[in-house]
């Protein structure tokens, strides 16, 4: 049970902050999200990555109650999103991809408007973020740049001290400086209050920096869901030099992507183990094998290229 200013809401205290079970959404005959199952433990940060059209925004919109769920179930803080959205919204913050709000309002009016809906609004958090972001309360929303709007969006999403923060590609189209300031704001919230964060992004450097876990979507399906460190330590890029005029005979089943160019055979493997490398050398006519670490961005590209079957 948790209490917000006198109102008691039944929730699971120790369960995952976000839980998706067989979540499915179709647009016409096309599956935007298909049988998606994953859990985000409390106090952790999940980076949701995938190419355009992978189903990231659809998943987030279903979580926010903005899209109906065709099949499966989504729960936030133990509450079913199909039944408890107003109660859930009191406890979550949301930053959308497009930061469009009332252009005619001043920042102070927008803050006052948003503040009135939350029982847990904290003026100190709001003021400190206004200072951190250098926002002028008197400015009208229509006078703000995209970067400023993004910061206002974050400020509005976190000033009621949410237990879960959902960010839907909030940093797309921002310059590196604003992105850095935005991430500082998010990190401050995460560090100060052990907030659970789910964020989708194309900026994989930011995901690698911020996320504890990563979930990769492709064509509405979950390809990978694991801790970022584990993924980066287990996945390797293998470069093998083949003997003249021969092609690889055996490909490890753990191969995500591969490419053969003349004598060079490149493959990304997850998980990569010494035993696998031994077998690779034993089964294939290779002269030399080199193993390298691979960053999240390259790994993401390899997963997508592997799925698409492109070199």
């Amino acid at each position: 049970m948790s209490t917000i200013k006198g109102e008691t809401i039944a929730t699971e205290a120790n369960g995952p902050a976000i839980e998706l079970e067989g979540l499915t959404k179709h647009y016409g005959g096309t599956a935007a999200v298909e049988n998606l199952t994953l859990a985000v433990p409390r106090g952790t940060t999940l980076g949701l990555i995938g190419p355009n059209g992978a189903g990231k925004s659809t998943t987030i919109k279903m979580l926010m109650g903005m899209l109906t769920i065709d099949a499966g179930r989504a729960r936030i803080l133990g509450l079913d999103v199909s039944e408890n959205m107003p109660a859930i919204k009191q406890r979550i913050g949301y930053v959308p991809e497009l930061h469009q709000t009332y252009r005619w309002m001043r920042i102070s009016e927008l803050i006052g408007f948003t503040r009135s809906f939350y029982k847990t609004w904290n003026d100190d958090v709001c003021d400190s973020l206004l200072d951190l972001f250098g926002l002028d309360r008197r400015k009208k929303v229509k006078q703000l740049s995209k970067g400023m709007l993004t910061k206002v969006s974050l400020l509005l999403a976190v000033s009621h001290e949410p237990e879960v923060l959902i960010l839907d590609e909030p940093m797309s189209g921002l310059d590196p400086l604003v992105r850095e300031e935005f991430l500082d704001g998010v990190l401050r919230v995460v560090c100060e209050r052990q907030c659970t964060v789910l964020f989708s992004s194309h900026a994989l450097g930011d995901v690698q920096r911020m996320a504890d876990n990563v979930a990769m979507l492709y064509d509405g399906k979950l390809l990978v869901h694991c801790p970022v460190d584990e993924l980066l330590s287990s996945a390797k890029r293998v470069r093998a030099v083949l003997r003249d005029g021969v092609l690889p005979r055996w490909q490890p089943p753990e191969t995500i992507w591969q490419q053969v160019q003349r004598r060079e055979w490149l493959l990304t493997v997850n998980p990569c183990s010494p035993a696998l490398l031994d077998q690779l050398q034993a089964e294939n006519p290779v002269e030399h094998v080199e193993v390298n670490s691979v960053g999240l961005e390259d790994l993401f590209k390899d997963y997508v290229k592997g799925r698409r079957g492109t070199p």
Partner: peptide, 13 residues
């Protein structure tokens, strides 16, 4: 004005 998404992200039904 495209403020609908913002409005729907807030708690009011």
């Amino acid at each position: 004005e495209r403020s609908t998404e913002f409005l729907f992200s807030l708690p009011p039904t």
